[in-house]
Computed example of a mutant assay.
Amino acid sequence: MPFSSRNPLRGSLLALALLLCLASAPALAQKPERYCPSFLAVKGAPEPTHRGEISFSPFTLHWNHSTEHKHVVLVALDEQLPGDRLCGVSLFSNSFGQPSAYVYAGQQFNGLLGVPKLFVKVTAGILYGYLAPYEDKVPLNHNGFSPAIIPAVGYQFTSNDSLQVKVLGSAGLMFSYGRRF
């Protein structure tokens, strides 16, 4: 049975993904070991001020409207590393209602344009989930796997909370809330 907006399994999988991320956040905050590969960290850089970040995106704006587009929801979990680097995973329903995932590493650049709370985050990794008949909706797709680079601009409105806008190439913009822990 295909994933559609009427399929209750879709909502259940997203709820399960959110619960798994929320359940993992306290464990990440308490354990001293890292889950990201050590080569991603900048040697000699100070430790990050927080262990990780959980993000939730309830809305995506598509550049071009299509009757095929479905509501996109995303949950992501990042681990912060020395040198403002990070790695993480996001689970989401793509624009066509298919369950999808993105595993990535990235860099955050704080103090954009001299504004201490403004930042840019750039991630690169492997995207999975755009399957037939939508495999041509992302470039270089092979059996549902494709490379991705996602830049984002964010604003840290409290020490733990941020709003971010992710640029999804020629597809659109994703709006998300991030909570540090």
Results as ranks from 00 to 15, higher is better:
1 M>A: 09
2 P>D: 12
3 F>L: 01
3 F>W: 11
6 R>P: 09
8 P>D: 01
8 P>R: 03
8 P>Q: 02
10 R>A: 12
12 S>E: 11
15 A>R: 07
15 A>W: 06
15 A>V: 04
16 L>K: 06
18 L>V: 05
20 L>R: 06
24 S>N: 12
24 S>T: 05
24 S>F: 12
27 A>M: 08
28 L>S: 03
28 L>N: 03
28 L>M: 14
33 E>Y: 15
33 E>W: 15
34 R>P: 08
37 P>V: 02
39 F>G: 03
40 L>R: 09
41 A>G: 11
42 V>A: 15
43 K>D: 10
44 G>Q: 12
45 A>V: 06
45 A>C: 11
46 P>L: 03
47 E>L: 13
48 P>A: 06
49 T>Q: 15
50 H>Y: 14
50 H>N: 11
52 G>S: 01
53 E>A: 06
59 F>Y: 15
59 F>D: 00
60 T>L: 11
60 T>Q: 13
62 H>Y: 10
62 H>V: 02
63 W>N: 06
65 H>A: 11
66 S>N: 08
66 S>F: 12
68 E>N: 14
69 H>Y: 14
69 H>K: 08
70 K>I: 00
71 H>N: 12
73 V>Q: 10
74 L>H: 05
76 A>E: 07
76 A>F: 01
79 E>K: 02
85 R>D: 06
85 R>H: 15
85 R>M: 08
85 R>E: 05
86 L>W: 07
87 C>H: 10
87 C>D: 06
87 C>G: 07
88 G>H: 01
91 L>G: 09
91 L>R: 01
92 F>V: 00
94 N>P: 08
95 S>P: 11
95 S>M: 06
96 F>P: 07
96 F>Q: 04
96 F>M: 03
96 F>A: 01
99 P>Q: 00
101 A>L: 05
101 A>C: 04
103 V>Q: 03
103 V>H: 02
108 Q>D: 10
108 Q>I: 07
109 F>C: 00
109 F>K: 05
111 G>D: 05
112 L>N: 05
120 V>C: 13
122 V>I: 13
123 T>P: 08
126 I>D: 06
126 I>T: 14
128 Y>A: 00
129 G>F: 11
129 G>K: 04
131 L>M: 11
131 L>T: 10
131 L>V: 08
133 P>F: 14
134 Y>E: 00
136 D>V: 02
138 V>I: 11
139 P>F: 09
139 P>M: 04
141 N>H: 06
143 N>W: 14
143 N>M: 09
144 G>K: 06
147 P>T: 01
147 P>F: 08
148 A>L: 07
151 P>K: 05
152 A>G: 13
157 F>D: 04
157 F>E: 03
158 T>L: 08
160 N>S: 09
160 N>D: 11
160 N>P: 00
161 D>Y: 13
161 D>S: 14
161 D>F: 14
163 L>R: 00
167 V>I: 13
170 S>Q: 13
172 G>W: 10
172 G>T: 02
173 L>I: 02
173 L>N: 10
173 L>H: 09
175 F>S: 04
175 F>T: 02
176 S>A: 15
178 G>R: 03
178 G>K: 03
181 F>W: 12
